[in-house]
């Protein structure tokens, strides 16, 4: 089976500033990979590049068989990104936001109910405008969208942030279920122990590059300093 993600010397720029500066990474299909690194190391940029949201300036980047230098739009229905933002419309209710997300991504609407229930979004909360929801509830909704879309590649940026203990355990369970279902998961997290427990392997990122495994702990210390 071909790898889900192949980045070779990939460069992503914001103006002239390199967000990824020659990053190389290969992730097998069905693998759960934990991305770790200091703030600003490039974890979020890598996830956004994998989602086709950031253009690749040079190098090679393929995600789910799509060459991102040629076309980074047609890939998007196959990936799900849980970012720092939830991509919600504040005026729309929890239910309406999920239904819109599913219609837009052409996912079956029947998945909405089970996904909302799985994330504990039930009762009156369903008709509550997202603008009136707590940060944790918004996070749960973003996860519900992801679950209902059932993407082939899950891109999770600090998925446990802002969640209570029960929801954090649900996130761990969802990642495990995604893997069982054949999906690939890239997970950026500062919660090293928790992430290590659900990931197949861990990759250190610093300065927009993957730190070689043999030397990563020593180099990370230097980069952060």
């Amino acid at each position: 089976m071909p790898p889900a993600v192949v980045f070779i010397e990939a460069v992503v720029l914001a103006g002239r500033f390199p967000l990824l500066s020659g990053l190389s990474l290969e992730v097998a299909t069905g693998e759960v990979v934990h991305l770790r690194g200091a703030n600003g190391a490039g974890k979020t940029s890598l996830l956004r590049a994998c989602a086709g949201l950031l253009p690749i300036a040079s190098g090679r980047a393929e995600v789910l068989g799509h060459d991102l230098l040629v076309d980074r739009v047609s890939l998007r229905r196959a990936v799900g990104l849980l970012g720092h933002a939830g991509f919600h419309y504040e005026e729309l209710s929890v239910r309406d936001n999920l239904r819109f997300a599913l219609r837009a991504s052409r996912a079956p609407l029947e998945r909405a109910g089970p996904a909302l229930e799985r994330l504990g979004l039930t009762g009156r909360l369903l008709d509550t405008p997202v603008g009136a929801c707590s940060a944790g509830q918004r996070r749960r909704l973003a996860l519900a969208v992801l679950v209902a879309r059932a993407p082939r590649l899950w891109l999770l940026d600090e998925p446990h942030a802002g969640l209570d203990a029960e929801a954090r355990a649900t996130v761990d369970a969802l990642v495990a279920e995604a893997r069982v279902g054949g999906a690939t998961v890239l997970l950026a997290s500062h919660e090293l122990e928790r992430a290590a427990a659900i990931a197949d392997r861990s990759v250190e990122i610093a300065g927009g590059r993957v730190v070689p495994a043999a030397t990563d702990s020593a180099e990370v210390g230097c980069d952060v300093a």
Partner: peptide, 15 residues
């Protein structure tokens, strides 16, 4: 707001 525009792009809607 809440980067909803990114959500539109990610959903694969025709531009």
């Amino acid at each position: 707001a809440d980067r909803a525009g990114d959500g539109l792009r990610l959903s694969g809607l025709d531009a």
